[in-house]
Design a protein around this nucleic acid. Structure first.
Length: 561
RNA sequence: GCGCCCGUAGCUCAAUUGGAUAGAGCACGUGACUACGGAUCACGAGGUUGCAGGUUCGACUCCUGCCGGGCGCGCCA
């Protein structure tokens, strides 16, 4: 985990200014100077690489330059200690005082610690899940939902206006097939031998929908004049029902959308026609073999793509262009699409189309979601729609709970395969990372209950005016404060890098530092009330930061377990 | 065949995007409750970073070539 900090930028500038007085050449390498927390704590809170960069300019060895830098910085009071190490690293040790305002911020901001409240970074759109409304959500959708939603929360935290969008594929063949499938099941109620369509949906839920229609809408259906009309009616009915189910399942994970965008409306509102006309007028299309093509090769694709087939119908691609043209006109600073990894070959194509429409180079972004495999008793639970051994997202949530689903879906980079270990998710021990981080929160809550009961200390009344934080001198305490200081910028960083899975690492590390502290130090001691209050104050800050992180992930901050 | 992703401890993953002795968790071994929740903590062992070259003060990271795995290459959606 990269350990940047709130004060890093400020501190770097400060350090450079100090060095500049003695070594003006630093101005030339300023942008390359890195002020980073090193891997090992013995190398200090921060380490600066300036001596290596200056070596060429000063024609001297890094180690000698490092010595000069050490002398310059040593006298500053914000540093407890300055050391030269290795081939020329200068290691900086901050004094405890440095962390006091940060602690206070964590106390005051509650579960929004470090969040950038004025959303001035820009307006963005994140589209995710976008499952076909032809069946229940499966595990891949669930992973996409969690990754997309967490990403959205991260961007909000980092100061963006975020709109979450679900694209409803309600136009194409699948919906027609859905109608035909329901229709067949409907007919089967009276004629068991009535055939299912070849590519039809075979799940139990289709039968249930058919039964429902048979029981409560039979008369209406029988009064319809054509089979076509019936199928269309059933498709619409099933679609709405399944879409509702999808919404319910997503709500279980704390996922809600701002915009539900209908593919069908792109066609009914003429938006597909419109965007094709727009592209034609820009001279970016041509006709060949009776079809209309887009010159995507002009924008980086390896071949041109068909927009309108020779039979006169539009390709899915054309609809998608129209959809993203609509997004483009909504003036987002950039957009992110969360897609299944099997669509990765589709990216260059759509990206080219967006460039053709005048989007900026980095406007269109895609985050890919790889497969989820379930493991139980060390065995993979093979999933097969045909064999009926199909585990839905809802099934998984019912098995292990919402928090475990979210956490486990976020443990790995979304672009790598995920093995979901059900046994591990159910374990109530430190092997299970969800319990580990939640336990940290519950433990602190427990300490607070104890503090109230035995010492009559009200946690809500602890603030900077009643607490002397300078008493927090232990190493474990400094570690915690340092980590708290560093977390917001860590979060901004994983946001910009689109690595939502790393939020679990941050949560885990904070929990780990707390558990260490807990095991090695007493908080509720009778003999020193001032120290007791200072430590409880620190715990309160830790709990707030945990809550902040949990909120981003939509995980429950449990008081008791 | 072409393109993209991946290959790091027994397993699952990191490594501040080119920096210090490649780090965590799990599993394994040893130890820690008369005290705030032991659902925890500490210590230990574990590596030729798939292989071979190259670039430079320095490479898990960048370049080239192999080996192995995954995915994608429709006038499907």
């Amino acid at each position: 985990m990269a350990k940047r900090s709130i004060m890093k930028t400020k501190l770097k500038q400060q350090v450079i200014n100090l060095i500049k007085r003695e070594i003006p050449e630093i101005q030339q390498v300023k942008d390359k100077v890195k002020l980073e927390p090193p891997k090992e704590e013995k190398f200090g809170d921060f380490s600066i690489n300036a001596s290596f960069l200056l070596a060429k300019h000063l024609k001297d060895k890094p180690i000698n330059i490092a010595q000069r830098i050490k002398q310059i910085l040593e006298s500053e009071e914000i540093f407890e200690k300055v050391e030269v190490a290795g081939a020329g690293f200068v290691n900086l040790f901050l004094s405890t005082k440095y962390f006091e305002p940060i602690l206070e911020k964590a106390i005051l901001e509650g579960d929004t610690y470090g969040e950038i409240k004025n959303k001035t970074k820009g307006k963005i759109n994140i589209e995710f899940v976008s499952a076909n409304p032809t069946g229940p959500l499966h595990l891949g959708h669930g992973r996409g939902a969690v990754v997309g939603n967490t990403l959205a929360n991260l961007y909000k935290y980092s100061g963006y206006n975020v709109e979450k969008e679900f694209y409803i594929n309600d136009a194409g063949n699948q919906i027609k097939m859905l109608g035909l499938s329901v229709y067949a099941r409907f007919r089967q109620i009276e004629e068991p031998d009535y055939p299912l369509p070849e590519e039809g949906y075979k799940g139990e839920y289709i039968k249930e929908i058919a039964r429902q229609l048979y029981e409560s809408h039979r008369e209406k259906i029988l009064s319809m004049s054509s089979e076509e009309e019936v199928v269309e009616y059933m498709a619409e009915f099933a679609k709405n029902l399944l879409l509702d189910k999808i919404k319910q399942d997503l709500a279980l994970l704390g996922v809600e959308f701002d915009i539900w965008f209908s593919e069908k409306e792109l066609y009914t509102q003429g938006k597909v026609y419109e965007v094709l006309k727009f592209l034609e007028e820009k001279g970016l299309t041509y006709e060949k073999d009776g079809a209309l093509w887009l010159k995507t090769t002009q924008f980086g694709d390896d071949k041109d793509r068909v927009l309108k087939k020779s039979d006169g119908s539009y390709t899915y691609f054309a609809g998608d262009i129209a959809y993203h043209f609509d997004k483009l006109k909504r003036n987002y600073d950039f957009i992110i699409n969360v897609w299944g990894a099997d669509h990765h070959g589709y990216i260059p194509r759509l990206k080219s189309a967006m460039l053709a429409l005048g989007a900026k180079e980095d406007w269109f972004n895609v985050v890919l979601i790889q497969l989820v495999k379930l493991f139980k008793d060390g065995q993979e639970m093979k999933m097969s729609k045909r064999a009926g051994t199909f585990t839905t997202l809802k099934d998984l949530i019912d098995m292990v709970g919402k928090d475990a689903v979210i956490y486990f879906f976020l443990t790995k980079d979304s672009n790598t395969h995920l093995n979901f270990d059900i046994d591990l998710a159910l374990k109530k021990s430190s092997e299970n990372p969800v319990y580990y981080v939640q336990y940290a929160h519950a433990r602190i809550s427990s300490v607070f209950r104890e503090a109230k009961e035995k010492f009559n200390i009200n946690i809500n009344e602890l603030d900077s005016s009643t607490v002397d934080t300078s008493l927090l001198k232990e190493k474990a305490e400094k570690e915690l404060m340092k980590y708290i200081a560093v977390i917001p910028e860590d979060i901004y960083e994983i946001t910009e890098k689109k690595q939502p899975h790393k939020i679990t690492q941050i949560a885990y590390e904070l929990a780990s530092k707390f558990h260490y502290y807990y095991n090695n130090y007493k908080f509720l001691q009778q003999d020193d009330e001032k120290l007791m209050k200072a430590r409880l104050y620190l715990l309160k800050a830790v709990r707030n930061v945990l809550r902040t992180i949990f909120k981003i992930m939509e995980i429950t901050p449990v008081e008791r377990m």
